[in-house]
Design a binder for these strands. Structure first.
Lengths: 135, 135
DNA sequence: ATCTATATTCTACATTTGTAGTATGCAATT
DNA sequence: AATTGCATACTACAAATGTAGAATATAGAT
C-alpha cells in the first residue's frame, strides 16, 4: 500500500473527475468541473500539485495531455477515514460508531442494510474452521 | 446549533485537554500536553486562535487565566464527521458505511456491539406509538 | 509568415495551520 | 528599587491550500 499524501478539499473534486473518467484531458476535466466557477489556471494548478504529490500522472507523448490517477479512490478514502478517526476520535472506532449512529439520521432501510453488511462481515471475519474464503 | 469553525490537527489536541478538564489554566494545559514537545508559545498561539475562532473563552478577572471551551466535543465531532462525509464520500452515508466495515477491521465483539446499537437506534427512530423517550 | 485559439507553464497572493522567538507585564523576593 | 520568574502578548516564518493573472508554446487557419 503506497503512501497517500494529504489531499485538500478542492483537490478531491479534481481527483473525483479523474477517478470517474479513468483518464481525461485538461478540457475534459475542465468541463466536468464547470459547476465550480474555477478559472482554468486554478484547475491546472491543482493538477500540477496532484502530480507533484504523486497521485496523478500524465500520459507522456500525447498531444493534449491525458491525466490519470495513480492512486485509487478506495485507497484515498481509506486513508482519509483513518486520519479522521485518529484526529477526531483518538482512533476509537467504537466511540466513533456510537456517535455516528446518533448524528447521522439513518433511515430504517439504511439501518437494515448496514445490519446485513455487518452480519456478512462477521461471518467472513471469523476464520473458525473454514479458513478458505472463496469470494 | 452554533457555527463550528474548522479546527486543525494540533488545535484538536488543545481542545481535548479543555474538554476533558472542563476548564484549565495555561500551566495545566501545558502540563497536560507535555508529551507533545511543543514550546509554550506554540500552545499559547493555538489558544489565542481558538479564542479568535470562538470555540474557547477566558474566565475574565482571574489571576492566571482560566480557559474553557465554548463548544462541546460532540458538536465538533459531528461537524467533522459531516465535513468528512461530504468531502470524501460526497455525503453518501451508505457508500461510506459499505467501505467502512471493510476498511476498519472490526472484531466480532465490536460488530456485535454495533449491531446492538443499531437495533436500539431502529427502535428509537421509528416514532410509531411511543413518542416519549425517557433516557 | 502571421494570426488566433487552445494548451501549458510560471509566478503571485491570501488564508490557514504548525511552530516558535522575543518582549513586556506583573508579582514575590531580596 | 532592582531582580527573578511566571504570565501574557506580539511578531515571524514556513508549508499547505485555494485562487488566479500573465506569459509562452503549439497548432491550425489565412
Amino acid at each position: 500500500m503506497k503512501k497517500i499524501p494529504s489531499i485538500g478539499e478542492a483537490e478531491w473534486q479534481v481527483m473525483n473527475v479523474l477517478w470517474e473518467k479513468g483518464e481525461a484531458t485538461f478540457s475534459e476535466i475542465r468541463s466536468a468541473l464547470k459547476e465550480h466557477s474555477w478559472s482554468q489556471t486554478t484547475i491546472h494548478t491543482m493538477l500540477t500539485r496532484l502530480i507533484k504529490k504523486g497521485v496523478v500522472a500524465i500520459k507522456e507523448g500525447i498531444s493534449p495531455y491525458v491525466f490519470y490517477p495513480l492512486v485509487s479512490r478506495e485507497e484515498c478514502r481509506k486513508h482519509e477515514t483513518f486520519s479522521f478517526l485518529k484526529r477526531v476520535y483518538n482512533g476509537s472506532v467504537k466511540l466513533f460508531l456510537a456517535n455516528f449512529v446518533n448524528d447521522v439520521e439513518l433511515s430504517d432501510r439504511e439501518i437494515d442494510e448496514l445490519l446485513k453488511m455487518l452480519e456478512k462481515c462477521k461471518t467472513t471475519e471469523q476464520p473458525s474452521e473454514g479458513e478458505n474464503d472463496n469470494a
